[in-house]
Structures are given as structure tokens and as C-alpha cells.
């Protein structure tokens, strides 16, 4: 990824920042310029808690270029507690049987090794919720 693009995405990648609509209170991830529900343009940033449940998941056995170094890995769609859904990798899933509906939480992990641009890309992934964190 190019450095300016990474810089623009730092809010979403590090803090799971989306938008909240000032008119209809709709909560949106990732951030948008126009509310998809009421079409208002009065949106403000909102950081999501990172807690949610697994809507669906799969294991990628034929990774796209740029991700082949991960071997096989799991990805999922997570319904955040605040409403929106987000797609991401599921980390720390080895030895855990993933199930639809299971509680998960956001973690910050390495998304990609340094490419030709020379920096390592970090961002959100989700993992099965730890008992202490979920208490």
C-alpha cells in the first residue's frame, strides 16, 4: 500500500473509526461522506468498541498475491455490537473451532509485510473474545 493511502486510513485501521449520522443516528463502518439511510451529509467520526459476533467465516486456502506468506488463514464478517458489519481476518483461531454467533473482539495486528514501499502495514483483525476481556 502507498504511504499516503495508509496515512488516510489510520483512523479506520488503528481505531476502527467509522461515522455516525447526526440526523438519523445511523452508525456506519467504514466512514462515508453520505449517510446511506437518510442521505444526510452531516456525519461525524465514531470509533467502534471492537466487540461483536461472528456473522460468517471461511478459511482462505488460495491466498491472493501479497498474502501468500500467511499460508492459510481465516477471514470473517463481524457484526459489531453498535450495529455495522465489518470484514476482516480472524487471528488466533488455531485450535479454536469458529462458529457463527461466537463473540469476537478487535486486535491490532500486522496486515502486510513491508513491500516495495518499505513499511509494515498494521490494522484491525478480530479474534475469539477472551474470557477476561468479555467479562
Amino acid at each position: 500500500m502507498e504511504l499516503p493511502r495508509y496515512h488516510r486510513m489510520r483512523g479506520t485501521l488503528y481505531r476502527l473509526e467509522g461515522s455516525a449520522c447526526r440526523k438519523c443516528a445511523h452508525r456506519i463502518f467504514p466512514p462515508r461522506p453520505v449517510c446511506p439511510r437518510c442521505k444526510a451529509q452531516e456525519l461525524e467520526p465514531m470509533a467502534f468498541s471492537g466487540r461483536g459476533t461472528l456473522y460468517s467465516f471461511t478459511r482462505v486456502l488460495q491466498p491472493p498475491r501479497g498474502f501468500t506468506n500467511l499460508g492459510t488463514y481465516s477471514v470473517g464478517m463481524v457484526r459489531l455490537d453498535e450495529g455495522p458489519m465489518v470484514s476482516a481476518q480472524i487471528a488466533d483461531a488455531d485450535g479454536t473451532e469458529l462458529q457463527i454467533g461466537m463473540p469476537v473482539e478487535m486486535v491490532t495486528r500486522k496486515l502486510k509485510d513491508a513491500e516495495e514501499h518499505g513499511f509494515i502495514l498494521y490494522g484491525y483483525k478480530f479474534r475469539p473474545r477472551l474470557r477476561a476481556a468479555g467479562a
Binding site: 500500500m1 479506520t12 456473522y55 477471514v75 464478517m77 476482516a88
Partner: peptide
């Protein structure tokens, strides 16, 4: 590009998640 492909989520993976949810 930013919120699916950028996370290593292939096309087959997107459809696989739909299929698993449908089966569920």
C-alpha cells in the same frame, strides 16, 4: 480495495462466507 481485498479476502472467500451463512 480498502476494506475487503486489502485484508486478504479473496472473491472465493466472500462467496464462501455467503454460502456458510446461507447453509446456517
Amino acid at each position: 480495495a480498502d476494506y475487503e481485498a486489502g485484508h486478504g479476502i479473496s472473491f472465493a472467500a466472500l462467496n464462501a462466507m455467503l454460502m456458510r451463512r446461507y447453509m446456517h
